[in-house]
Amino acid sequence: MTSIAEEGAVIRMFHVHKRYGAKQALVDATLDIAKNEFLFISGPSGAGKSTLLKLLYLAEPVSEGQILVDGMNLSRISRRRIPLLRRKFGIIFQDYKLIPTRTVYENVALVLEARGKKRSLVEKKVKSVLRVVGMEDRLTAHPPSLSGGEQQRVAVHVP
């Protein structure tokens, strides 16, 4: 893992531990990520990569240590502000998290609507995003009828 200690860091982790019950998923992780920095995190399966990300957008609570995201201390953030934190992230979930009963269009639109975007904007944005990933002619398809790669392309959420 690369770590650049720097004043302008957008994301900072100090001695972060994560336990799932008795299972230690992350041990003493410390890192800073600067603005515009492009960072890979690699490791074997089960190393804790997904866990690290989940801690950042609070899908999982930290067991020990501190995390700062854009000035917000995640251990002190109020329940009400968690959505604001999450809106700062664009995430492609490992399991894509597409809703099988909704169309491609609805799946992408849902993310934008959930983030409080205006409807006129949502429509434009969904179409443009799907055009970028080359899925503009599958608007009304349902995820189970898509190939793995196609599902992955739909899962690209642009905040």
Partner: peptide, 16 residues
């Protein structure tokens, strides 16, 4: 519940 969970993860407010 699946859908609600996803909405939560991408930043939907409780009210939404």
């Amino acid at each position: 519940r699946e859908e609600i969970h996803i909405m939560r993860l991408v930043g939907a407010t409780d009210n939404f």
